[in-house]
Design a protein around this nucleic acid. Sequence first.
RNA 1: GUGUCAAUAGCUCAGCUGGAUAGAGCAUCGCCCUUCUAAGGCGAGGGUCGGGGGUUCGAAUCCCUCUUGACACACCA
Length: 558
Amino acid sequence: MDLKQNVYDVLKQLPYQNLNELVIESVDDSKGDYCLPCFSLAKTLHKSPILIADEIANSLDINNSNIVKIESVAGYVNFFLNKTIISKNVLNNFEIEKYNKNNKVVCIDYCSINLAKYMHIGHLKNCFLGESLARLFENFGYKVVRINYVGDYGTPYGKIIAGIKMWGSKEDIEKRGIDALQEYYVKFCMAEADDKDLQQLARDIFKKIEDKDEEIYPIYKKVIEVSKKEAERLLNILGIKFDSWKGESSYANELDNVVNFLDKKGLLSVSEGATIVDLSKFDMPPFIVKRSDGASLYATRDVAAVIDRYNEYHFDKMLYLTAVEQKLYFAQLFKVMELANMEFSGNLEHISYGRFSLPNGKISSRRGKQAVLVDLIDYVLNKAKEVISNRTFTIENPEDVAMKVAKGVLSFNSLNVDRNKDVVFDIERSFSFDGETAPYMQYTYTRIMSILRKAESLNLNKVEADYSCMEQTNAFELIKLCCELNNILILALEKRDPSILLKHCIEICKNTNKYYTACKILDGNLSQIKAKLELLNLIKKVLKHSFNCICIETVEEM
RNA sequence: GUGUCAAUAGCUCAGCUGGAUAGAGCAUCGCCCUUCUAAGGCGAGGGUCGGGGGUUCGAAUCCCUCUUGACACACCA
């Protein structure tokens, strides 16, 4: 529902083309709801904007329209909507736009954790961004394939297993899980720093993994199993579920195939011993597919992966979510696919986001436990429990609410700024529960629910609603905001940025909080109460739908 | 060095496909719980939109330039 349409309907009376595009929202309601700046018309019409605005304002007939007043002020034509009529129309007819399935497949590669290492703050942003985009695509009828392209391959596994053999045991891994793996990894990394023998040992063990060595390979499988279980546990808490966990190891043996494939396309050359695709014509460094020592690289496996995914899913879009530092790399990968004339090459898209960093520097899994995801979850969950226990308002399921609030805070923190911006992560500030935050949004929803519950006893079925109370500024502002939902969803999808939707939700929540404090919903005559309750129901519907798209759950009370 | 992105209130950020007096939240200082949940609401202070040019009737928004910062730039992922 686009309320500007009411203005467009009236503008049809004028002989000028493309006036609709000029219509914008008024700066404040003393200037109407929408306005038409006439400055750009001045040139073509050879008249002053003030005169044009005057003429337009005078010539338009607003009988039989939803415009109640038109005035000309300083070159602007201001349009005042008939708030009562429009509100009635909206409250009786508003539906969240349903999109039919469009048979298009979007693969989203996100999360992409390295198994056997802790998930950290950076993954949080990646996961929620990916999940939110997935939900947005689903909203518009796409079939989404969620791919967790896990790092389950490479010398780090040689190191972990070396560590286990030196200090640990199978039982220990069974018992302590990821903590044990992380500990041996860190310990081994420190030990090998100036020990050539240990470095060689790790490489040897990795080779044994590749060769499916009788002793080593089962340990590797165990390591993967334990790590995957932990990752699934955490992702489950966050409310994220993947369709594919196909990791790098699945493409480990594709080196020859990839090299042959690119060679047939005539793209390969050898430089400094390495096999490369020369991209100098495109002002890019070479794309290396085979190291000078003959080994494969991430890039090799990515070529294999994208082809494999296309064969399996026939995607219409393939989205890669990573931090911004991989921008050039993906530009190279996509260019190589284009040069290889792959039919899907135009449908690959890299969605980058700014870096998360700690106040004291870079995040690294080798540098101790700060900003590790489990700790963050614990921290927020405990804080939520504490806040709940200190409240005067008692609720039925404090544990459940605490969990939903905690998840909301984590998601909010990942999605609330423009995805391209770098964020310095400050735990106290980021996980605040006051002001414009996820708890604030959830709280708004509970207040609506609370009023709606209370209203049930009023028995308003036979009462006819009186929409004149929607003339009130806050009320009509809410009507407008709710009507913008679909445009906001479209924008968030197009820009691949859920923060746009999140901002809009906050705007709705702010106005809702203002509304019910300034105007008591269950006071006054029944006809007006009915209209006000319809408004609350509208807001509820819009918030519930929007929250889901940004991975924030609603709660009934808190 | 080259390229990409960024710079808006003390702090964190909106606004950026040009439009009327630049907005929030946090922090600071006031006020509001006998009235639908105070995780709330109301109010106050706080700005040469990094500097300088340009385009335009009009620029935080577009272009150029400079400064500062982050990131990337051949065998890591």
